[in-house]
Amino acid sequence: MHLPLTSQIINLLAALLLLLSFSMLTQRRILSLINLFALQGLTLTLAILVVAWSTGQHHLYYSAALTFVLKVLVLPGVLHRLIRKLNVKWDVETLINIPTTMLVGIALVILAFNVALPISQLAGTIAKSTLGIALACVLLAFLTMITRSKAVPQVIGFLAMENGLVFAATSATYGMPMVVEFGIALDVMVGMVILGVFFFQIRERFESLDIRHLEKMKDE
């Protein structure tokens, strides 16, 4: 079966996104994690650009620009500044059981493909076959969040999840209406600012950014 070149490129970029999600899942150094996140943002921008170019959906160019500015320039920049100020730049997290995490990740990908299958068949967009990958990225980012015990990687997982959602919107519907996309971007920005403030307060109170210190509150 021969696919047009643009679809092939989109599929390639989608595969790259999935690969990056997996590498974020197992990356132990915070600095590398941020770089991977920036790279994921760049791949996402390229994917949106290719979809925009091949379908002639002009508002997707704005969406790509927004993604580029926010996910490649601003947020990684803010995160770099934060880890420098918090002195956690060279932190290495001890992740237990990377092989198990990977296996769970693979199971999630299979699940995502199965869930997305009926929708992909119905969607009429050029990137419809990648909806499964988008859902897989969301689920893998979620897994990244719950396997981490430090605050900064948790937030990166949260932002990666948002990347997956943007990709889902692009592949299923050629993006959301512009006003909604701006709203989402605004929420992400404000959320990031609040979290930045939070990091400092958590560290001030607990002298660490390890969320495991925060586990006193339980239902006895």
Partner: peptide, 16 residues
Amino acid sequence: PASLEAAWKYFILCGV
């Protein structure tokens, strides 16, 4: 500490 923990939990869970 307790209120920071509650807010963090709230943010992460509701964010997800």
